[in-house]
Design a binder for these strands. Sequence first.
RNA 1: GCCCAGAUGGCGGAAUUGGUAGACGCGCUGGUUUCAGGUAUCAGUGGUGGCAACACCGUGGGGGUUCGAGUCCCUUUCUGGGCACCA
Length: 825
Amino acid sequence: MLSMYDYAAIERKWQTRWDRDRLYRAADTSEKPKYYSMEMLPYPSGDLHVGHAKNYAFGDAVARMMRMLGYNVLHPMGWDAFGLPAENAAIERGVDPAVWTAENILNMRRQIRLMGTSYDWSREVATCEPEFYRWNQWLFLRLFERGLAYKREAPVNWCPHDRTVLANEQVIDGRCWRCEHLVERRNLSQWFLRITDYADRLLHDLDRLGGWPERTRVMQRNWIGRSEGVAVKFGVDGLDEPIEVFTTRADTIYGATFLAVAPEHRLVQSLRGIVSPAHSEAIDRFASAVRSKSELERTSLMAKEGVFTGAYAIHPLSRERVPIWLANYVLAEYGGGALMGVPAHDERDFDFAKRHGIPIVQVILPEDAEAAAPLEAPFIEDGRLIASEGFTEMSSPRAREAIAARLAAMGAGEPRVTYKLRDWLISRQRYWGTPIPIVYCDACGEVAVPDDRLPILLPPRERVTGEGSPLGSIPEFVQTECPKCGGPARRETDTMDTFFESSWYYLRYLDPHNDRMPWDPQRAAHWMTVDQYIGGAEHAVLHLLYSRFFYKFFHDCGWVSGSDEPIERLFHQGMVLRDSEKMSKSRGNVVGIDETAERYGVDAMRLFLMYVTPPEETSNWTDAGISGRVRLLNRIWRVSESVAPVPSPRESRDDELPAAETDSDKALLRAVHVVAKSAIDETLTRRFHYNTTIAKLDELVNLMTAASSQPVTPALQYAVRMLPILIAPFAPHIAEELWERRGNQTSVHLERYPEPDARALAVEEITLVVQVNGKLRARISAPAGVSEDEALALAMADPNVRAHLDGRELRKRIYVPDRLLNLVA
RNA sequence: GCCCAGAUGGCGGAAUUGGUAGACGCGCUGGUUUCAGGUAUCAGUGGUGGCAACACCGUGGGGGUUCGAGUCCCUUUCUGGGCACCA
């Protein structure tokens, strides 16, 4: 595709000059109000594709708009540089992850710069550098000191392919979220962060995040999964210790006809001791059968399998004997790993009871039912209690309170709040991550590495031998001395989950070269919170929840001030598909940055990515589509070049609205201000629907092109003068070049965005729609502000309107000034 | 199963508050420019009927509220995303 102007040369020229002039450096002190605008930092996978480009095109347009609206904008970029792909490259191809990562960063940085983005590169961070990850270690030690980092043996998800432990959140349908291999269960001693201590705050403060998409807040709310209920103790016949179950439906307690216990429950061993050898054997058989199944098989089984233990619990209220079962559908990790089975009022318990011949006792009646009838299906809603001793006739909500109170008075139960959220497992048996700064001493036990010995450096990859725990295979790394007693000790060989560093990196941008602290609290006080964060919806829970947790912790420590939420406004941009398919290397349909920039130019690419769809929608890359943006840029170039600058040294400052004599001049001035208004509105309402702004730019350029075939008027002069400023946030290179060619000495990106002018936007003549009985019958021209009576007179003069009224009398008329007149006959 | 989004011409989309449905672009058709292709430019482009004026139909389907519904309400189908033995 031919271009009228040499975009390649222009884009290169300005990228070099902006860089030389440090145009986008953010000042840490400024008269202007601050604005912290950020895109999620990329993993340096190797190549940027147009999916990344969409994210950065939008983020950059927002940053540029805010700058041109008078804000001191911080717009940084960095690299989420630790992680599995680098390590896989090492395993598969023998490349050093550090080298592989550094090369990828080099290439992707080049590509991001190639896009003409306005990042402040002086603040760039890469999480794999010791200057960064020493603060991971420092922060870990602070968590450790405050009891928020702890080690425990726990069943974990083991991916046999990646040879690593995955967080529960990283297991998708029983498979590794990255390599999709089936996940197994293993016991290992692991480091956890006590995010559950913050569950209530993380939940409640969601209500304050008005600048976040509702769906993201809903997802986090569900993820935290708070339930209020009662922990009820059921004594066990023949055992000193009771079994504790959690229920949200204490009102159904008289319908409990069995207890169901997870095979992993710690009392299962004790139960084996009090039952017959046959039962004990059955317990063993069932427990090991369940354990041998992967999480996927176990959770996808619809059949409610179970085995009777031979033991009985005593119902705390009715004193009846209740059989204790092991059941596969009871989760060891939730609600204490045991539940009371109420078949009449819970679907899963109903299925289980039907399958195993357990009695079904109805204790809740629908409000409108007279008497109990045999149940076809469980009744799971609230109702009126029956067969519940002194609680009979109570409503469900009342009964829940009354029964909880009775249980509490008896010492057989207490109110309890339970969460789905679990503590955050951060241990990784990987090489390419932050070493956890703990040593193990036979005499002193777990000992924190003192701050002055940080960072614990990652040893060279070439020292790693064999498989399993990579750092564990390097004796000179493992062997150390105890910081406390000086005796021989062993280092922790786990490294950290990369979500650790991505939970706080936005603070390091504020103070990237600080070697005494991760960041200066004063800088944080100035720049935080992040005003606008842009990134994919796939991070709606994990990354964003962990970031909120960390920030609350930092707030508690006094390292950040003001709000204890890190992100004011969040925006999820949609994916980019290629011809309606997901882009992937295996499909061979990846649209690369380099080819696209070369073929169409960066400005055209940026415009197209913002123009095809609203930013939150999935957009579809088509090679045909971008040609429309190339044409637009050509037209912009041509019309600008066709109008010579007015020989005045102050042309750029001369933004007085010129007088317009003709309709076409008025339309031209109006179109200029319509674009300005749209750009500003889309930015300040955070809708970012720049697709509509660019459509209005098309209209402006169409008008300018038409006007340029006539003698040049002041209105056209004005439009040509304003055009580079209007397009600067969206097509920064051509904007700057046209600006310079009109004799300006300073960057267009330092200009103020034009204030929409009410005089220019005003319309003198409007089109009034005339309806008869709600149907459009005429469009008539009228002066703006026309009165209802005048409008009626004009309408009645229209033959088509008269024809449709057909002489009937007007029963009613509705007048919307300057828009519509509806005549009802 | 539950939760959250969506469904508008051949295509991407516009219509932010109940008030001209289809802005703008892609594609397509025709004219001009050109040796030709491309580029540029002008015009046309939801469907049906009509020379035209114009009429009727039209925002996934059905119903409703209203002078007036893409927009609000009820219902239903489909698509996308998320979560799912959470007691």
